[in-house]
């Protein structure tokens, strides 16, 4: 009886976790702002660590917590800062990715 209750609660936990992960991944991959995508990716790494814990793989969860949440986020943030900087030390206007779209429409117009 007790085991059935625990497994149903854990299944509810699984469903909530999976829905949150899918929602977060959808917004992570479809937003215009690239900084928002990086922050959503950090949160996504945290939810992935919870999913590894739930699938009885605590070693993988430990590696994900150390690397995915601790190392990848600062890597992306540093790369974002470095890519937003031009040679003269001033920042570019388009931090989101409409530069490629403008270029394509220009080519179509030309």
């Amino acid at each position: 009886m007790d085991a059935i209750v625990i497994y149903s609660i854990l299944t509810l936990f699984d469903i909530t976790l999976v829905l949150t992960m899918l929602w977060l991944a959808w917004y992570l991959l479809s937003t215009e702002d690239i900084f928002k995508a990086v922050v959503l990716f950090i949160s996504f790494g945290l939810l992935m660590a919870l999913a590894w814990v739930r699938m009885r793989a605590p070693d993988v969860a430990l590696a994900e917590a150390a690397l995915g949440a601790g190392l990848t986020g600062p890597l992306f943030l540093s790369a974002l800062r470095r890519m937003n900087r031009t040679r003269k030390g001033e920042r570019r206007l388009d931090s989101n990715e409409n530069r490629g779209k403008d270029h394509n429409t220009e080519q179509e117009q030309a």
């Binding site: 950090i42 945290l46 660590a49 605590p58 430990l62 917590a65 150390a66 601790g70 600062p74 943030l77």
Partner: peptide, 13 residues
């Protein structure tokens, strides 16, 4: 231990 690693690396980002 996993929670300990999370607490250690929380401030880094």
């Amino acid at each position: 231990d996993i929670a300990l690693v999370f607490a250690l690396l929380a401030a880094l980002a």
